[in-house]
Design a protein around this nucleic acid. Structure first.
Lengths: 236, 236
DNA sequence: CAGCGCAATATTGTCGACAATAAAATTGAC
DNA sequence: GTCAATTTTATTGTCGACAATATTGCGCTG
């Protein structure tokens, strides 16, 4: 998976960052999960200094929150940040597909269709990790096909944060939307219908956002209280 | 200078990052300047591990390029990256001023005019460092006034990279454009003329870009401590 | 038996030292 | 005199150890 990370570098810190990033995208690391650097150090077989660097860059990326003398944990975006993330995604991705309508080659469209095929395969195979990951990578692929390096990196950050957000605020009914909406977007791109493509993208993102319950709720509290079947009034 | 950095943290690494960032914006650290971590460590009075973390995050930000066994130096964006940066800035800032036309309060416009006044003062006072810094901060102010957190951070990265680019590719004739174009943009915003505001912004950025000669350029190394503006304070 | 304070533990933050690699300088040969 | 190989130096990469701080468990007291 040679992504738009600076992949050529054998740098260990980059590897750690990518690994954590992947774990977050695949929901194997959930928001609020503690990251003890010693554990990470042993897990990667390196010293703590290296994981510390990785933690620093991940913090700047907004993926982990790093409180001074209390260690690091996966970030828990608030509702304001969630709305901002979706707003920014719409802001960027709408223009991106518009631009792609004008510039896309046949090879690009083939790549998009190929990606959707992978999504369908993962969907059929019940591989939920792959489903989630591929769903995000679709948007990154769009960014890459437009030759917009910066926007691509930005979008990587944004999709990652979206993963965090959906992990926090999704209702259990909500599954990740299937590849159908993605396919509708690709269809619009192939038809060179910029307006429809932008509409499809906006609809898609709005669909994602509205499937969440964006209220103030602490994820650990919700998990605990709901899991134990306690009423809301009692605790704390 | 309480910027949209996570300012509240007393974290040393954040301080180092901001200091280097400021030095780059003010042109006291030019592209290609070597950053020997031991020098930085002594300059800031801390150990090398700390500056190494800072270097890691700065590298991910694209501000320094960090080649495996040869140390760190201020990044030297290529022509492709330069064009991408300007494209992305236009992409974002055009929409930003459009949005600001709809949402700006009187206080916002007053803040913008106040900022332009500062720009004029620095311009009159021949304080070229302040001129350059304030010129960039104008765009960041626009981002902040629109309540777009993400776009603000993105724009901070982009303006920084623009600083690098202009430092590399500017002709000696080129001065940083005065506050006039900024004022024109604010006038359009105050008139709630979204189309004109977007045009003004596009023109402004295009003006900046076209004033450069996009060929290869060299840049010499400079003294670290003087460039970072710390006058023997921390050295001892 | 509940609440509070204190000690024990665990985890983080910071640092200096050692090994590995690249750049520079010296020396030798043609 | 110049080029090349080798030694020398400087700088980076990595690590383990020590100090500071938060968390946990225990015991004491009311």
């Amino acid at each position: 998976m040679p992504w738009l990370t600076d992949a050529s570098k054998n740098d260990t810190v980059t590897l750690i960052c990518d690994r954590v990033w992947l774990a977050v995208v695949q929901r194997s690391l959930r928001p609020g999960a503690r990251l003890k650097d010693e554990d990470l150090a042993e897990a990667f077989g390196v010293s703590r200094a290296r994981v510390r660097q990785a933690l620093a860059v991940l913090e700047k990326d907004g993926l982990v929150s790093l409180v001074p003398n209390r260690g690091a944990c996966i970030a828990e975006p608030g509702v304001a940040e969630a709305r901002d993330a979706f707003y920014t995604r719409g802001f960027i991705e709408k223009r991106l597909v518009e631009r792609l309508c004008a510039l896309a080659t046949q090879a690009d469209i083939a790549a998009l269709r190929d990606h959707i095929a992978k999504e369908r395969a993962a969907h059929a195979g019940q591989d939920s990790e792959a489903v989630i990951r591929l769903s995000g990578e679709f948007h990154l692929l769009i960014a890459r096909l437009t030759d917009a390096q910066f926007l691509g990196k930005i979008l990587r950050t944004l999709t990652t944060r979206t993963s965090l957000i959906t992990a926090m605020y999704q209702t259990e009914s909500t599954q990740t939307c299937g590849p159908d909406e993605h396919e509708a977007i690709v269809n619009a791109i192939e038809a060179r219908d910029a307006a429809r493509a932008a509409d499809m993208m906006e609809h898609h993102l709005h669909h994602l956002e509205s499937a969440l319950q964006l209220h103030e709720a602490k994820s650990p509290a919700v998990d605990l209280r709901a899991a134990l079947g306690l009423s809301d009034a009692a605790a704390q």
